[in-house]
């Protein structure tokens, strides 16, 4: 790699989330969540809809400011940092609903990933002079060699993003995240809405990233097959709390997880929990079900 990282450090980072709580008004999205993502491993964050996975992601990437708790990046507290500062540290993320810049080509989208690590100033840019040109050329060479080849998107590099299929757009988003020189990669539902083949491709690319780049990866995903296949560590959230964690097969066998996804099969227990929920949070969509039963 050319040039030095802004933070002065390279390689995979350890991410620790400690006792994180986030609420929107009366709605408690996260309640004292703690977990960690180990350097160079794939950690999956799973849970039913509304469990707080995306809220968690937004806290980690700096969109939401949690009321309590901390996010630590290699031991450094980043809880109050703005997204651009986190980007300079080595946070990179992809979005659940693709967030590419539709008016630009694939190449420009990927190059944008490097923004925080580049130095060209305004006047140099207007003149496209010495250092500015050199920096652009270094970037282009590196993007071509390390990212475009790696993710097999060389045939579409000059196409506008808006013209690509969904699966390819997701791949370009991963490419852009890789261009950020990530020390931790946050993937928000990397295979949502993909067909089997695209999912397999993406799973392979994620594993390749882990092996060749050695980046720490934290992902939110609903595709259990893929989560169980490629994760090293799984954290299960439900109603804003961690209900289980461990190796994929341990989590799979955990009765709490089965209950969270499928229910316990015991109506009395469900009713008891719903009463508790409405008392403390007034959340969860479950009371709606309750009413529906009344109507029926």
């Amino acid at each position: 790699m050319t040039g030095a990282l802004d933070s002065g450090a390279t390689g995979a980072a350890r991410l620790e989330v400690e006792d994180l709580s986030l609420s929107f008004g009366g709605l408690k999205a996260l309640r004292g969540v703690s977990f960690s993502a180990e350097p160079g491993s794939i950690t999956a964050l799973i849970g039913p809809n509304g469990a707080g996975k995306t809220s968690m992601f937004n806290c980690i990437s700096g969109f939401y400011k949690p009321q309590k708790g901390s996010v630590r990046f290699d031991g450094r507290d980043v809880t109050r940092m703005h997204p651009p500062e986190r980007a300079a540290l080595g946070f990179a993320r992809t979005f659940q609903n693709i967030a590419l810049f539709r008016g630009m080509t694939v190449l420009d989208n990927i190059k944008l990933g490097r923004h925080a690590h580049m130095k060209t100033g305004l006047l140099q840019a207007l003149a496209y002079w010495g250092p500015a040109q050199r920096e652009e050329m270094e970037l282009r060479a590196e993007v071509e060699r390390r990212i475009i080849d790696f993710l097999e998107i060389d045939h579409i590099r000059n196409m506008p993003v808006a013209a690509l299929s969904y699966g390819l757009q997701k791949r370009v988003e991963l490419a852009r995240a890789l261009a950020m020189r990530p020390r931790i990669l946050l993937l928000d539902e990397p295979v949502a809405g993909m067909n089997r083949e695209e999912t397999e491709d993406m799973a392979r690319f994620i594993l390749d990233v882990k092996e060749e780049w050695g980046t720490t990866i934290l992902m939110v995903e609903h595709d259990m097959g893929m989560v169980m296949d490629i994760s090293d560590h799984v954290v299960v959230l439900n109603f804003g709390e961690v209900i289980a964690r461990g190796l994929p097969h341990e989590v799979q066998a955990d009765p709490h997880v089965t209950e969270a996804y499928l229910g316990s099969g015991d109506p009395a227990a469900l009713m008891a929990r719903l009463k508790g929920e409405t008392g403390t949070t007034g959340n969860s969509g479950a009371p709606t079900d309750d009413r529906r039963e009344d109507v029926a």
Partner: peptide
Amino acid sequence: TRVGRAFIAIRDRDISAEVL
């Protein structure tokens, strides 16, 4: 250059521009 790309990024999607 990066300056111009940043402008377009802000036009197209300012939230993800910030993440970058």
